[in-house]
Simulated assay, not measured.
Amino acid sequence: MRLHEYQAKEVFADAGIPTPDATLARTVDEAVEAAGEIGYPVAIKAQVHVGGRGKAGGIKLVENDEEAREAAAEILGMDLKGYQVDKVLVEEAVDFVNELYVGVTMDRGEGQPVAMVSTRGGVNIEEVAEEDPDAIAREHIDPAFGMHEYEARKVVYEAGVDRDIAMDVASILSTLYDLWEERDGADAEINPLMVTAEDDVIAADAVFNLDGDALFRQQDLAELEDEAAEDDLEAKANEYGFDYVRLSGNVGIIGNGAGLVMTTLDLVDYYGGAPANFLDIGGGAKAERVANALDMVFSDDNVDAVVFNIFGGITRGDEVANGINQALEQFDEIPKQVIVRLAGTNAEEGMEILNTDLVQVEATLEDAVQAAVEAAAEVEQ
C-alpha cells in the first residue's frame, strides 16, 4: 500500500521529523485560501503516485494569489502520467542551500534492511545509483537489534554530509528506520531532505509504502487506503483479479506466474528496454482472462509494445491463443505491437491458432523480449 505525500508527511511529522507547513486542497479556491494562510511563496504539488511530478508539470512554485489560482487550476484535473489529479498539497516553500537523500528499504539480496544516505538529493535516486553508485552510502541493519545510533552516524558521515548538520540528519534517519520497522514499511524515503542557510533540515518530500500483508497490524494507516486512490489501471486490475504493478517504462509485460513475469522484466532490462508493468494472469487462465489482460495493457498510454510470455503447465497454449485472438479481433487497428512466446502444454496447438496477422510470434523468450524492446524503441523515435 502506498501513501500519498501528504499522508506520509503526517506520519513523519507525528514521529518528530520536521516538515513544511502544508494544507491539502481539493478545489482551486481551497488552494488559494491555503496559500494565503501559509504565506507566500508556496509550492502547489499534485498528489498522485508517480515520480517526476515537477518535470511533468505537477509541482509549481507561486508567489501570489493570482499565480496560485492559475497553478491550482492547471494542476487539478490534469492527467499526470496516467493518474487523474484530484487534490494538491499547498506547502510552504523552503529556501534551501542543499538537498540530501535519506531512505530505508529491504535489501533482498542481503536479507537485511538497508539505510541509505546521499548528498545528491532532489533527483531520481535510481539514476544516481546507476550512474554513480558510490554517491550513495549504505548501512545494513540487523533487524534483531534495530538501528544503533552509531550506525546512523556512520552512514551519514560516509555519505559526506556536512558535520554541522550530520547529527540532525542521523537523527532523522534513525526515526525513519524506526517508522519503517514499527509500521511494517516496504520503502521509506525523504527526497529531498532540504538544508537551509540556518542549518535546519526539513523533509520537503516523503515516500512511505507499507507491506500490504501487514495492514491488519496497522489499522490507522489501513484506513487511509481509500484516500490513497488507485489509478484506473490499478482499479481495473482489482476488478479482473490480476496481480499487477505499474512501472515507468514502455514495454508491456504479460505472463503466467510471478517468477516467469519477473524473468521477463529482467530480460527487458537486460536488452536495454524499460518494463511498463508487472502483470501475472495466473495459472489456468481462460480466453476471457487473457483478453482482459491485453485490454489492461492496451489501456496504458505509456506502453508502446507488448511481450506475452506463457509457459503452459496448468495454462493451456490453445486457451491463451484463443484469448489473444479474441482480444485483438475487437480492434479495427491493433493499438500496440504484440509479440508472443508460447511454450509448454498445447503450445504447438496454440501457435497454429494464433492469428499471425495480428501478432508477431517468436520461438524463444529471448527473441520475443528483444523484438518487444526494439518495437517500443521504434515508437519512441
Results as ranks from 00 to 15, higher is better:
133 P>S: 05
32 V>M: 02
311 F>D: 09
305 A>N: 09
30 E>T: 11
196 T>H: 10
183 R>H: 14
165 I>H: 11
356 T>C: 01
356 T>R: 14
191 N>W: 02
346 N>Y: 13
197 A>Q: 14
2 R>S: 09
257 G>T: 06
338 V>T: 13
306 V>E: 05
78 M>E: 07
361 V>G: 10
281 I>C: 04
165 I>R: 12
186 A>K: 08
152 A>Y: 03
227 E>S: 08
275 P>H: 02
364 T>V: 01
188 A>K: 11
137 A>S: 14
301 D>W: 06
20 P>A: 10
214 A>L: 06
154 K>H: 10
253 I>R: 00
54 G>S: 04
243 D>T: 14
20 P>L: 08
90 V>L: 04
238 N>F: 03
318 D>M: 06
87 K>A: 13
78 M>P: 12
194 M>A: 15
94 V>E: 06
52 G>V: 11
104 V>I: 14
116 M>K: 07
63 E>C: 08
220 D>R: 02
333 E>L: 02
150 Y>S: 13
64 N>C: 08
38 I>W: 00
183 R>Y: 09
137 A>D: 06
106 M>F: 10
70 E>Y: 10
243 D>E: 13
96 F>E: 03
297 V>F: 04
132 D>V: 01
161 V>R: 00
263 T>M: 14
253 I>M: 01
47 Q>M: 04
266 D>F: 11
69 R>V: 03
135 A>P: 05
234 E>Q: 09
132 D>A: 06
46 A>V: 14
